[in-house]
């Protein structure tokens, strides 16, 4: 089922740096979850999509929420449906069998899937420490108990686990002890040009040069709360391209249209507009 020689080497819409590719492959071989940290917009989530695409595995995404309990990620006992069924008895389910009312959560789905999956646990830092530690226990043992039916669910196939975190602070020690770690730095201009080319294969080189230059200057503005990231740049270039009146030279001159695409917070936007209109860039 699981071929031994599956290695990851990038996907169609993802520019992979070599170091990261090695780390992904090592983590897969060691069967350990890979924890990715880095600023928003460095492609942490995209990586999981790219791995799934390149290895041809289905991707299961668990979006962690702050109020989430571990059991929700594993399975849900749908008491309400059962209550309804027992009261009105108009379904075909057997009310006496609780198993009919157990629904798998995202981790449960990854475990019970017949083929190997990529399990992306997105933004783990949102949940509290207990959630994180308990979850790693489950991922370590590759099994969990369903208390209601007293049954242990083991993983049919060990999923490839990618965990992302935006937090600057560290996760707990036991958590870190069980994963491999990589920090994705914000792409440098050279890498960024590659990324742009992936998104816009026949982009005018003038436009790209100017846009990337301006983008990195804008990123360095002082006291910006949410600095524009790759996603914003891609959208911005899309906006520039779709404007028939726009000329790449204008960027170099300091006329920067569509700042709203890059800066999403009103304060940031004002600061950016101010700087640009005063030609301080």
């Amino acid at each position: 089922m699981v071929s031994e020689k599956q290695t990851f080497s990038g996907a169609k819409h993802y520019v992979l740096d070599e170091e990261l590719a090695k780390i992904v492959n090592i983590s897969m071989a060691l069967e350990m979850p890979l924890l990715l940290k880095g600023e928003p917009g460095t492609g942490k989530t995209m990586l999981a999509h790219a791995i799934a695409e390149s290895l041809g595995m289905p991707l299961i995404v668990l979006n962690v929420k702050s109020s989430m309990k571990l059991v929700e990620a594993l399975y849900q006992y749908d008491t309400l449906t059962r209550l309804n069924d027992s009261r009105f008895g108009d379904s075909k389910r057997d009310v006496r069998n609780i198993e009919n009312y157990i629904k798998m959560g995202k981790i449960g789905q990854a475990f019970t899937s017949d083929i190997r999956t990529v399990l992306l646990i997105d933004e783990i830092d949102k949940a509290d420490t207990d959630f994180q530690d308990d979850m790693l226990d489950v991922l370590d043992q590759m099994e969990f108990d369903i208390i209601e039916i007293d049954k242990t669910m083991g993983a049919k196939n060990r999923p490839v686990i990618i965990i992302t975190s935006n937090a600057k602070k560290d996760l707990s020690d036991p958590f870190l002890g069980r994963c491999n770690f990589h920090h994705i730095a914000f792409p440098d201009p050279k890498m960024m040009r590659k990324i742009i080319r992936v998104h816009f294969p026949n982009i005018d080189s003038d436009l790209m040069e100017n846009a990337v230059n301006v983008f990195y200057k804008l990123r360095e503005l002082e006291s910006i709360e949410k600095r524009p990231a790759t996603r914003e740049l891609v959208n911005w270039i899309r906006a520039l391209k779709s404007d028939p009146d726009f000329k790449a030279k204008e960027l170099a001159k300091g006329d920067i249209p569509y700042l709203g695409v890059l800066f999403k917070k009103s304060q940031d936007y004002e600061r950016a507009v101010n700087t640009v209109s005063r030609r301080r860039l």
């Binding site: 090695k22 090592i26 890979l34 870190l176 994963c179 491999n180």
Partner: peptide
């Protein structure tokens, strides 16, 4: 690459 990913967690 390997030693950093495995040993260093922050």
């Amino acid at each position: 690459t390997a030693s950093r990913a495995v040993l260093v967690k922050s």
